Simulated assay, not measured.
Amino acid sequence: MKIGVFDSGHGGVTVLREALLMLPQEDYIYFADTLHVPYGEKSKEELKEYIMDAVDFLRNKGIKALIVACNTATSVAIKELRQKYDFPIIGMEPAVKPAIQNGGGKRVMVFATPLTLKEEKFHHLITQVDKNNIVDYLALPELVTFAENLEFSEGAIIPYLREKLSIFDISQYSTVVLGCTHFPLFKDSFEKVFSQATKIIDGSHGTVKRLIDVLEENNIMGGGNGKIEYYSSGGSKEDAHKFSNCLIRATSI
Score class of each variant (00 low, 15 high):
Gly4Asn: 07
Asp7Ser: 10
Asp7Val: 06
Gly12Asn: 00
Val13Arg: 02
Thr14Met: 08
Leu16Cys: 04
Leu21Asp: 13
Leu21Gly: 12
Met22Phe: 09
Pro24Trp: 10
Asp27Gln: 11
Phe31Trp: 03
Asp33Ile: 04
Asp33Gly: 07
His36Trp: 12
His36Gln: 14
Pro38Tyr: 05
Tyr39Gly: 02
Tyr39Met: 09
Gly40Arg: 00
Ser43Val: 10
Glu46Cys: 09
Asp56Thr: 11
Arg59Glu: 09
Ala65Gly: 08
Asn71Phe: 07
Asn71Lys: 09
Leu81Ser: 04
Lys84Pro: 05
Tyr85Leu: 10
Tyr85Phe: 15
Asp86Gly: 13
Phe87Gly: 05
Phe87Tyr: 14
Ile89Lys: 03
Ile90Val: 15
Ile90Ala: 01
Ile90Gly: 02
Met92Pro: 03
Pro94Val: 06
Ala95Cys: 12
Pro98Glu: 08
Ile100Met: 10
Gln101Asn: 15
Gln101Cys: 14
Gln101Trp: 11
Gly103Tyr: 04
Gly104Cys: 13
Val110Thr: 08
Thr113Ser: 09
Leu115Asp: 01
Thr116Lys: 03
Leu117Asn: 01
Thr127Phe: 13
Gln128Met: 14
Lys131Trp: 10
Asn133Ala: 15
Val135Glu: 02
Leu138Gln: 04
Leu143Pro: 00
Val144Asn: 00
Thr145Val: 15
Glu148Thr: 03
Leu150Cys: 12
Glu151Leu: 14
Glu151Pro: 03
Gly155Ile: 10
Glu163Cys: 07
Ser166Ala: 14
Ser166Phe: 06
Ile167Trp: 10
Phe168Leu: 12
Ile170Tyr: 00
Gln172Thr: 14
Tyr173Arg: 02
Tyr173Asp: 00
Tyr173Phe: 14
Ser174Trp: 02
Val176Gly: 03
Leu185Asn: 01
Leu185Lys: 02
Phe186Lys: 00
Lys187Thr: 09
Lys187Leu: 09
Lys187Glu: 08
Asp188Trp: 00
Glu191Ile: 02
Val193Leu: 04
Val193Glu: 01
Val208His: 03
Leu211His: 03
Val214Gln: 08
Val214Lys: 08
Asn219Val: 13
Met221Tyr: 11
Gly224Leu: 11
Asn225Trp: 11
Gly226Val: 11
Gly226Cys: 13
Tyr231Lys: 09
Gly235Ser: 12
Glu238Arg: 14
Asp239Ser: 07
His241Pro: 01
Phe243Gly: 02
Cys246Val: 03
Ile248Trp: 07
Arg249Trp: 00
Ser252Asp: 08
Ser252Ala: 10
